[in-house]
Simulated assay, not measured.
Amino acid sequence: MPEPTLQLVTSDNVEAACAIRLLPHQDAHVESVAVSLALAYTLPTKAWPRLVHDRSALVAVVMAFHRVDWPGDPSGVTRSGLWRLNVDAQHQHQGYGRFAVLAVCADLLERGERTCFVTYDAGEDGPENFYLKLGFRPTGEFSGRQVVAGLKL
């Protein structure tokens, strides 16, 4: 079975990317792909959006951030990590989310980072268990109402 691959977002595939849909209860926990891509467009040196394909099927969109000032941190510390992960509802629980997170971690490691950060909604319907299973650990910080977690690379 072939491995999933990452592809750049282009004018040829952006509409397909925006068609990615989550399960209904997940919509409250992550922005749409369209919002993520619009944000990436405004921060081209900080945002890292990629499409996850398996064979010819687009299965997910992942976006990382690199060296972003952390909200609410007056020290000027910058962090890098996973910003958004949207795995299409019909392709969830097949390893694509894990693949996307590991790809982000590999990219950050190549850029000299030693920790990958993520924020998420805690609770039953949120992605907390997914991130904990991958080894992320809460830092004790919050970004708004979201938990901040880190994974040592």
Rank of each mutant, 00 (worst) to 15 (best):
M1K: 14
M1E: 14
P2M: 10
P4G: 07
P4N: 07
V9F: 00
T10D: 03
S11I: 11
S11G: 15
D12F: 03
N13C: 00
V14K: 05
E15S: 13
A16T: 10
A16L: 09
A17R: 03
A17Y: 08
A17N: 06
C18V: 11
C18T: 07
L22D: 11
H25K: 13
D27K: 13
A28D: 10
H29M: 11
V30C: 09
E31T: 14
E31W: 12
S32D: 08
S32L: 03
V33L: 06
A34Q: 12
V35F: 15
S36M: 13
S36G: 10
L39N: 15
L39R: 15
L39V: 15
A40L: 06
Y41L: 14
Y41C: 15
Y41H: 15
Y41W: 14
T42V: 14
T42C: 13
T42H: 15
P44E: 01
A47N: 09
W48M: 05
W48P: 05
P49D: 00
V52K: 04
H53Q: 13
H53E: 09
D54Q: 10
S56K: 07
A57L: 08
L58K: 08
L58A: 04
V62R: 03
M63P: 06
M63I: 08
A64N: 04
H66L: 12
H66W: 12
H66Q: 13
V68G: 03
V68I: 09
V68R: 05
V68M: 11
P74Q: 07
P74E: 12
G76D: 08
G76F: 12
G76C: 12
T78N: 07
R79F: 09
G81V: 06
G81R: 04
G81L: 11
G81F: 05
W83T: 10
W83I: 11
V87A: 06
D88C: 01
A89K: 07
Q90P: 05
Q90Y: 09
Q90R: 14
H91I: 09
Q92N: 06
Q94R: 09
Q94I: 08
Y96S: 00
G97L: 05
R98E: 06
R98N: 06
F99I: 02
A100S: 10
A100D: 05
A100I: 05
A100H: 04
V101T: 00
V101K: 01
L102K: 03
V104Y: 08
V104H: 02
V104P: 01
D107V: 07
D107G: 12
D107P: 05
L108Y: 01
E110N: 06
G112P: 07
R114K: 09
R114Y: 01
T115M: 13
C116N: 02
F117N: 01
F117V: 11
T119K: 10
T119S: 10
Y120I: 05
Y120G: 03
Y120L: 01
A122T: 06
A122F: 12
A122H: 12
E124Y: 11
E124N: 06
D125W: 09
G126A: 02
P127G: 05
E128M: 11
N129D: 14
N129A: 14
N129P: 12
K133D: 11
K133M: 10
K133G: 08
F136D: 05
F136V: 00
R137M: 06
R137H: 02
P138L: 03
S143K: 12
S143Q: 14
R145C: 14
R145E: 15
R145W: 14
Q146H: 08
V147P: 02
V147K: 02
V147R: 00
V148Q: 08
V148S: 02
G150W: 02
L151V: 00
